[in-house]
Design a protein around this nucleic acid. Structure first.
Lengths: 261, 261
DNA sequence: CAGTGGTCTAGACCACTGT
DNA sequence: CAGTGGTCTAGACCACTGA
């Protein structure tokens, strides 16, 4: 039942009706996910109205031949990503995407997702040691247990950026230094069957000691950015404790927060 | 069809069957939310098995007199919070809660949620000025437009902790210094009808200038933790630009990450 | 193989928003 | 008031896991 006078009333998306979403029911990727991806792509490419209404859910589901819950699931995933906003009685809007890509050096994200992917990483130390008191506490193991101590120096453009110190229960994983430099720690953990679930981080600052300054090519007393992290797998077991030091002159953490109502 | 030999086979939760969830269909709070809250409370209080299986969804929905999607929605919200893990073919497990409450000073969270709630906040400056170049860029307004410049000194235990510098489009909000000290900035924004949606933050470090050192009761050159933030409302419009400086000796950011698959 | 979560449907009623 | 999203139901089939 196509209505004749179907022009935009408020500030609706004229593009949406003409957008052809290609949904493949044979694909192993869920329908709601296919739809979400295509909506996201449309937003990304500016095809979808940067500021305003995106037709209602019922019409959309009819047009796509999907049920409303499926369409809702797709939309909800984009709401969770912060790309859309829903208002009862009003409609669903595309958020003005202020968030472009103003990343400079590295970020919290690729620290987690692609640790070791950055320019170059040199493994300075890789040995099994007895857990010290604080490491044992963080990893939830007995003091003196065997843990792998890892120390890596990360450089970009040939300049030192960070000194990464990591501890892992040595039973968990074999850490080959060569692969570590090319593959990255988190990738190695994942292929060893460890599925990361959550992490607790503390970010602070302090002045560099003489030794740290020497290794990072800074002056003694220069400001350093520090980060401690304990990471857990999906059973809640601690799998990594990290102490990182960054040259504040060459590194900042930057990330986005979403406010959950 | 209650089966007779209903004892736990693997490491099921014996408590769950005896837990009585009180669902009030008359309440304005959604059923899935009521269920989620009560599940969360059960986990919090250790009533629900800290490490293992939580009966399957169909049984649960039958027992509670709810539909499966509703039960799933409740469970999903706890999965999103990181409290539960689902595995296809296996079941739903309670994550070992390593994450207790090891907060010390302040945190990213109460910075956002309860800005100004901390111990004491003194408004040092509160005036309308012409937007400088960087402020204008961050707030997406013309250079020279009227913006409210805010400068606050935060103390805990009588000691300075942070110097908070905020800029807001002056058209948005009337900022009364007295209320600002008692109520907090974000609370004032919310009651002015501004719904915060997202924010972009950059955290770094640098050495204190002489003036900063004097105001924060530090030595010149001491390490400071810095944070810049631009906050957006739900239309994507920038509503705040902030530049904060923290005494590294008295403040750290700490927060939790959840890894999304 | 039986049991689990993952996906999907086709309806329904309600609460809220704006006119 | 009509239109929107918010919630809820009672089914269905599939993909994966583990014994």
């Amino acid at each position: 039942m196509a209505k004749a006078g179907d022009r935009a009333r408020t500030t609706a998306a004229p593009a949406l009706s003409s957008l052809d979403f290609a949904l493949d029911r044979g694909s192993p990727v869920p329908l709601y996910h296919q739809l979400a991806q295509q909506l996201e792509a449309a937003i990304e490419h500016g095809i979808l109205t940067p500021g305003n209404l995106l037709g209602n859910e019922v019409d959309l589901s009819v047009r796509l031949g999907l049920s409303r819950p499926t369409v809702r699931q797709a939309i909800q995933s984009l709401v969770d990503k912060g790309l859309l906003v829903r208002r009862r009685g009003v409609g669903t809007q595309v958020v003005h995407s202020q968030v472009k890509r103003p990343l400079e050096l590295s970020s919290l994200y690729d620290d987690l997702e692609a640790a070791g992917q950055g320019p170059t990483t040199e493994v300075v130390r890789n040995e099994v040691v007895a857990a010290s008191c604080d490491v044992a506490a963080a990893l939830g193991v007995a003091e003196g247990s065997e843990v792998t101590a890892l120390e890596r120096l990360r450089r970009t453009h040939g300049q030192p950026v960070a000194l990464l110190c990591n501890y892992l229960p040595s039973a968990l994983l074999d850490l080959d230094s060569a692969r570590l430099e090319s593959t990255g720690l988190y990738r190695m953990m994942r292929s060893a069957g460890i599925t990361l679930h959550s992490a607790r981080q503390t970010v602070g600052a302090r002045a560099a000691t003489a030794e740290e300054a020497a290794r990072l090519d800074e002056q003694e007393g220069a400001a350093l950015l520090t980060m401690q992290r304990t990471a857990y797998d999906d059973t809640g077991r601690p799998v990594e404790y990290a102490t990182h030091i960054y040259r504040a002159s060459r590194y900042t953490f930057d990330f986005q927060l979403l406010v959950r109502p």
